[in-house]
Amino acid sequence: MKEFKFTESEAKVYISLLQNGPSTGYELSKVSGVARSKIYNILEALTLQGILEINTNNNSNLYQAIPPSHLAAILETNFKNNLLKLEEEASRLTLKEKNQTIWHLEEWQSIFTKIKMKIAETEKSLLVQIWVDELDEELIQLINEKQETIKNVSVVLYDTKKEYSTSLKHYYAHGFEQNKLTEIGHRWITIVFDQTEVLYCTVPFEGVTKAIHTENPILVFFASEYILHDAYCLRLIDQFPEQIKAHFGEDMHGLRDIFSGN
């Protein structure tokens, strides 16, 4: 009960009533261990909250506790009402200017939850770079739903095994994963939401997962171009594999040799 902001004395009174049945304030003070100087104020407060019921016959007040299931329903209703009030009040707030701060996040579950929430809120476009290791069914479903509803969704998928075993409906298989891991040393996630916000997350093989997210337009632009140009190149490879292999080699190693000029 303390987790729901009840004081220790309030919890003792409620539990004592459940265990002993209807009681007067005097009786409750004895069985609960709450001082008589405090018991009546607590009984009044709990009664006003609808957690206790009162009978005033026979010139003495008799109290009984509502069942735990009823208490749970009251707490749930109060929580939902407060949440709605918070959303209504927050919706009235407007930012004077676009926030370009770079925000840092740590702890994988917190980062992963934010990714899912932001994807669910996306309305116009979604650009994603991600490894199969970081996909779960909920995230896959969210991306698939966006591909059906907003259309402007592009996913570049990485898999060290090059199996790309996933239920994602549309994606570009990268194909050069080992090269990227050698260059960078860890997996990562890059997502651009509605061309207005970017989230970049490093996923090290050991250590703490970290991420940044920002609405800074310069960083959003660079992240968008990075993902889009990956998709452009991979689409060409998908469409003309034989011609590209004939020019750059069977493993296309020469394709990444951009400094030779050949």
Rank of each mutant, 00 (worst) to 15 (best):
K114D: 02
N41K: 12
Q243H: 12
K98F: 07
F112A: 14
E53S: 06
L48P: 00
S260L: 11
L105M: 13
T101N: 11
T122H: 05
T166Q: 07
S37W: 00
I111Q: 06
T202Y: 04
I150N: 07
F221T: 14
V128E: 10
R235G: 05
K162V: 10
E121V: 03
K245R: 15
P204G: 04
K146V: 07
A45H: 08
E27L: 09
T166F: 06
Q239Y: 01
Q195Y: 13
A65Q: 09
A90K: 14
G21W: 06
F221H: 13
H213Y: 15
K169P: 00
F222Y: 15
Q239D: 04
K118F: 10
T149H: 04
L43C: 11
L228D: 06
E163P: 02
E3K: 12
E44R: 13
P241D: 10
S9G: 06
E76D: 15
E121F: 00
M252L: 15
Y26A: 08
E145K: 14
T160Q: 10
F240G: 00
V208N: 08
Y164K: 11
V34M: 07
F4W: 05
R187W: 01
K169A: 03
I111K: 07
E88G: 12
V156F: 12
Q147D: 02
I244P: 04
G207N: 06
E87Y: 06
E215N: 15
E145Q: 15
A35G: 11
G50W: 01
P22Y: 06
P217E: 11
T214H: 08
I39P: 03
L62T: 03
Q178I: 04
P217I: 01
S32R: 10
G21Y: 02
I258T: 15
I39V: 14
K30Y: 02
Y226M: 08
A231V: 11
K38R: 14
L46I: 09
Y164F: 15
E106Q: 13
S60P: 00
L199V: 05
N59S: 12
T122P: 10
S154D: 15
L127M: 08
V13Q: 10
T196S: 08
E134K: 01
K180N: 11
D251F: 01
T113E: 13
K169T: 05
Y158R: 07
K96H: 11
D251K: 15
H70F: 09
T182R: 12
V13W: 13
Y226F: 09
L93W: 12
G50V: 10
K146G: 09
F193V: 04
G249K: 02
T94C: 10
E138T: 03
N99D: 15
L93P: 02
M117R: 09
R36W: 00
Q178V: 07
H174Q: 06
Q100T: 13
N58E: 10
P67N: 10
K96Q: 13
R235D: 14
S23P: 00
E215Y: 03
I184M: 07
S110V: 13
T182H: 12
